[in-house]
Design a protein around this nucleic acid. Sequence first.
DNA 1: GTAATATGTCAATATGGCTGACGTAATTTC
DNA 2: GAAATTACGTCAGCCATATTGACATATTAC
Lengths: 172, 172
Amino acid sequence: MADVISPAKLAPNPLFLRDEELRQGIELLFYAYRDFTGEPDAILAKLGLGRAHHRAIYFVGRHAGITVSELLAILKITKQSLSRVLSQLVREGYVHQRPGKRDRRQRLLELTEKGKELERQLTRTQRERIARAYREAGADAVAGYRKVLLGLVDETERRKILTRLDTATKAT
Amino acid sequence: MADVISPAKLAPNPLFLRDEELRQGIELLFYAYRDFTGEPDAILAKLGLGRAHHRAIYFVGRHAGITVSELLAILKITKQSLSRVLSQLVREGYVHQRPGKRDRRQRLLELTEKGKELERQLTRTQRERIARAYREAGADAVAGYRKVLLGLVDETERRKILTRLDTATKAT
DNA sequence: GTAATATGTCAATATGGCTGACGTAATTTC
DNA sequence: GAAATTACGTCAGCCATATTGACATATTAC
């Protein structure tokens, strides 16, 4: 043990790779996420829904006609967990299911009008928050934000995500 | 309704403030957070602990001698929720409590050796992930990442967080 | 016709939030 | 020195969200 050199001092790392910087990066992510979810959570609570419902509604809205398995791949939860959330959303009229045309086993998901309305309400608070942060930080900072966040994603997922971001529903 | 103009088209916004861009910013945050918590969660599960324990251990390690109420202010959960987590960590020997000297009502928190070891193990995976992302993205991108994330935080919290980031324990 | 796929469901379990109420010790205030 | 406030804890109950494992039903593919 006596000869072990602290990893932080081992290599002539650039300043932004020092342990202290990395910890700040971790903490900022925590704080941002903590506050980012606060407002929608409050709206959802009044409707007897939770954050999981928001996620489902968001991605169904973003990818109208998405299949259950595609949604599972995005959320990375078990089908049992999603099933509970989804069946509640269907039961309460936020989401509509229709069988796939090519493959009738599939249940293609889309938001009802009621669902779209809720989606807009929930996303508005987050969009405003992001817009404010983007505006204050400027275009270059936004590019950096995107670059780093994408780098935090599992390597095997990045390509998928980039594709997904591009092919998201264009029509509103 | 017929006369409502889509907010996205209302003003000559810069490109990075278009609705599509904002949505991508929202989604990237989701994906990054999703994968960022995956590895520590797996380690914790084997020990019968959860993500909440990680957060507590992390911030106690970061601010040795922190009080319970300071920790509550960081985590923004109820004391009942924290109590459950904290008392388990104390019971299992990860965290040690000692009364405050100036104010003996306080219970100052610090990690035991066992706690420090676990903290290192948990944080290592995240630090490596952040470091990789930082390295790939470069110093400018890192600055942007920080700027935007801080902008996502509640306005009333920003000053506190900046102070906190600065005054974090220097000694390791 | 058999295998694989897409989806759903039942059951049990755990985590981590929440509210509300109450208790104790220590400190501060007047 | 009594009263109010603060720091912290605890009991009880509730809810949302995740898990594993097993089984069921269509439908499609080979």
